[in-house]
């Protein structure tokens, strides 16, 4: 038996490619998201077809990002898949429970401001990031 040398294995290289691919899709999604939001105000004004086109492009690229992420997850090894599954489950649960409570606060006028979807996205992102960090630390 001879062990492979310490160079990156084919599995690691595929993994890295998948990660980079997710990064590109996410960057494209963020750019089109920013264009859809700020384009009408700062660039093209009231040109409706440009706004609709950008929103459709953002939606299409969003689906591409989802597929790239799915591919990335499938390429991970079983420990990292477990960490990701736990983190995604936790962020979904926290998002659902806290999001609906936040919505209740708005609907019942307990809070003065409107409940913003962006706050929910930030909460889910932070929960996911923290859960991945703690999950990876658990198996270190």
């Amino acid at each position: 038996m001879t062990a492979k040398d310490t160079n990156r294995s084919a599995w690691e290289q595929d993994n890295q490619k998948n990660t980079v691919r997710v990064g590109y899709w996410t960057a494209a999604w963020l750019v089109t998201m920013a264009l859809a939001n700020f384009g009408p105000k700062l660039i093209w004004g009231a040109t409706g077809w440009l706004t609709v086109t950008t929103i459709i492009a953002n939606l299409a690229i969003g689906f591409g990002m989802i597929l790239a992420n799915k591919r990335h997850l499938k390429g991970l090894d079983e420990l990292h898949q477990k960490v990701q599954l736990e983190a995604m489950g936790l962020s979904l649960g926290v998002g659902l429970v806290v999001g609906l409570s936040y919505s209740n606060l708005d609907v019942t006028n307990v809070i003065a401001s409107d409940a913003e979807i962006s706050h929910l996205v930030i909460l889910m992102g932070l929960t996911y990031g923290l859960a991945v960090f703690l999950g990876l630390r658990k198996y270190r």
């Binding site: 492979k4 294995s9 090894d77 079983e78 420990l79 198996y139 270190r140």
Partner: peptide, 9 residues
């Protein structure tokens, strides 16, 4: 590398 998993695993 032999088992196609990460070192952490």
């Amino acid at each position: 590398a032999e088992l196609d998993v990460s070192r952490q695993t």
